[in-house]
Nucleic acid binder design. Structure first.
Lengths: 130, 130
DNA sequence: CTAGTTGCAAAGAGTTTGCATGGCG
DNA sequence: CGCCATGCAAACTCTTTGCAACTAG
């Protein structure tokens, strides 16, 4: 039902290599156009990845375009994600810490859903740069 | 520097009344056009609110438009918010719990920003209804 | 009065789509 | 071979902007 094309591999490959960063469609196209991929292939395949849940769409204040970030389902499912507001890098919380966190929320009568939640803040690298 | 206009009040009022819900610019315009507000005023004022941090821009998979959601700074500043995916009700975490949480993240080299973060999950009421 | 805001309509930009061509299985 | 994906360019739609009229302070 879905063919494995050169363009599809290129795009997926690009996302995998830049797991923590979010890109606009244009940035992705700029990065990949030397391979001969077209804009429409970029758009169509981003959308496909979005629909299959492998890529997440992100809006940024002041930007008209959307940004996209890879989400490795196998690696990440169930993990609580933290996204840096400065550089966009995403990491996830270790098992143990996540459990403590769940307990804290459950005390406040709330069951946290790790897959829907993204914690925003500042990562150490960006904190140090100041 | 910034004038208080009728249109601005109408928009802010609308957001306040629908704190937990996200709307597209068009949905907002549809809701408010009976007051005589124009589309451009809607867009311009959403953007202003976005820049001042009172409103957050959200992207949804499969939608070309952006969505916007209110963030109440006065009531909520510094508080970590929890939003129920079922009923949409929003509550916030008590001081003490929030502090523990901060420490957990800081251990993972991440400084959480309570004002930008919304925790998604299920509240007790909805959990019990099942 | 003066500077900021509004409405309107037109421009602009990002994204989607139709169609002929090409490629995967 | 049949069906799906690609490239190109045109179409589309959401958002921004220029301008003259208007308002808040």
């Amino acid at each position: 039902m879905e063919y494995k094309t050169k363009q599809r591999e290129i795009l997926l490959d690009f996302f995998c290599k830049n797991e923590d960063v979010s890109f606009s469609a244009e940035q992705i196209y700029e990065n990949l156009k030397s391979t001969g991929i077209s804009q429409s292939a970029v758009y169509r395949n981003i959308r496909a990845l979005e629909e299959s849940g492998k890529v997440r769409k992100i809006a940024k204040a002041g930007s008209r375009e959307a940004f996209y970030q890879y989400v490795d389902l196998d690696d990440c499912k169930g993990h609580l994600h933290m996204s840096c507001k400065k550089c966009g890098k995403t990491t996830h919380l270790e098992e143990k810490e996540a459990e403590i966190l769940s307990k804290i929320f459950s005390k406040s009568n709330f069951e946290i859903d790790n897959d829907s939640t993204v914690i925003y803040g500042t990562c150490k690298d960006c904190e140090n740069k100041k």
